[in-house]
Design a protein around this nucleic acid. Structure first.
Lengths: 266, 266
DNA sequence: ATAATAGTGTCTCTCAGACACTATACC
DNA sequence: GGTATAGTGTCTGAGAGACACTATTAT
């Protein structure tokens, strides 16, 4: 960014001498002081998603304090001064869910001045995808016990907007804190859009899976049924699947187990 | 975000009394003090793009001060405390380019700890699209005269990565400050991906345009020729074009002038 | 045997690419 | 007239949807 006009300090900022005109870079850096104007807090919030049966579920934490006491919020935390945004998101996942090594990607940055009633907080949202077996390993290092909320998307296709979340057992509505229903909605919209042309669907499955497993993941994310025949053809033709030779017993004929292989350079 | 564990203050933070346990929201908000730990600066940087002849060009500002003195940077500025991120980006466009009412969308947030050698600056990048006639109106309110740099994309399709930028006249390389070559690269990658399924191409054209104009915009953004016949069919079938009945004189048969109309609700 | 699920073969429809052809301007 | 660009009509090949059919298990 070209920082030629930082906003004026508005309160209690120490008086600053005009910046000397220096032409030596080291001298300039030494004389620079960016602490003289107010700065917002910066946090990361992580939408951790997995597919459970035919439900898209996300990890939420009950809030024991104001604001939004009694509501649920996405796992999140402030960004450390020496830490990249990606590292902050990974740390949040490790601290609040006990998970590491999961797929993680930046989603969007939310910065309305009044999105947090306490103070100005800009939140860089991430989404993370974890496979069904690994989602059972979730153990927070500390803090409240997380809950897997069932996501109910009230819009079609990739329209967008906030989503509803329901308790895993009784299906009662879960109130979300801050703008977290919007963040979740944007996460759903994003993965719906990326599902067709990126291999994110495989992140939600164990190492070996059947084509029906993969189809269920796609249908759950998209919120609509997909054609079985063309789905099979498309997946097999994509070159991303490798048959293991093993089969999975089910109610009928055993299904081939496939493995995801990164497509070789075209 | 769940702000249960803000990072500890590392230097010169005033000593804080432990937070009292209050169960009244108003009392809680009054007692809350988020200023007790260090915070990064937050800026917005705007990639302003237009198509000039068969070149994708972006607005850059020459840097008169360290760091990166003599290099070029994207128009940018710090986010005000009472201002949303979108508003900050719009303000930057108004101040640095004299433009208002242009298409603007958030791109990505860049937050490596050392991306700015002076201090920790997290930059929320935006991209803006402006039509060729309007791009000639660019008049900065103050500050250095901007330059339209020609973007040279060294990668195919939507691979991604930094881009090269050249001076409009002599074609000599322009050195970009900070991580701005990466930000530009991500902007190109994003609009290449969105071109097919969103109407962003029309943002780069005047109100009335020929199908060849539209095709040139697409080819310039994609960096490759597109099939003329199927492009015409696709565009006319999309329902987004309305013939004006007027025609534009050229070297051969006059071309119909079309107008962009938002597709009616399906 | 019957039900249930896995997987194959084939037909049709749609759409992108290719190409031939017509239309209308300037020179 | 020749040349250049705009626009149409039609053929072909690839891929999605639909559906009939076969394969392999449990009961």
């Amino acid at each position: 960014m070209a920082k030629s006009s930082p906003p004026r300090a508005r309160k209690k900022a120490p008086a600053r001498a005009p910046k000397p005109s220096v032409d030596d870079e080291a001298a300039f850096l030494a004389s620079y002081d960016a602490s003289s104007f107010p700065r917002p807090s910066v946090a990361v919030d992580v939408v951790l998603l997995t597919v459970d049966e035919a439900d898209l579920v996300t990890l939420l934490l009950p809030r024991g304090d104001h604001p939004f006491k009694g509501a649920f919020s996405l796992p999140g935390g402030f960004v450390g001064m020496g830490e990249s945004l990606d590292d902050a998101a990974r740390r949040v996942l490790a601290e609040k869910a006990g998970l590491s090594g999961v797929f993680l990607e930046q989603l969007y940055t939310f910065g309305s001045p009044r999105r947090d009633p306490r103070t100005r907080v800009i939140s860089v949202a991430y989404y993370a995808l974890v496979s069904r077996p690994r989602s059972a390993e979730v153990r927070p290092v500390s803090g409240p016990a997380p809950v897997w909320g069932r996501i109910d998307v009230p819009w079609e296709s990739e329209t967008g907007g906030p989503v509803l979340v329901k308790q895993p057992e009784d299906g009662s509505a879960m109130v979300l804190a801050f703008d977290h229903a919007h963040i979740l909605g944007m996460a759903v919209k994003r993965i719906r859009g990326k599902l067709d042309y990126t291999p994110i669907g495989f992140q939600l499955l164990p190492e070996r899976f059947t084509l029906l497993d993969l189809q269920t993941v796609h249908e759950t994310i998209l919120g609509r049924p997909v054609n079985k025949d063309s789905f099979r053809r498309r997946m097999l033709a994509s070159g991303q699947l490798e048959a293991t030779g093993e089969h999975q017993q089910g109610a009928g004929r055993p299904a081939e187990l496939y493995r995801f292989v990164r497509r070789s350079a075209v």
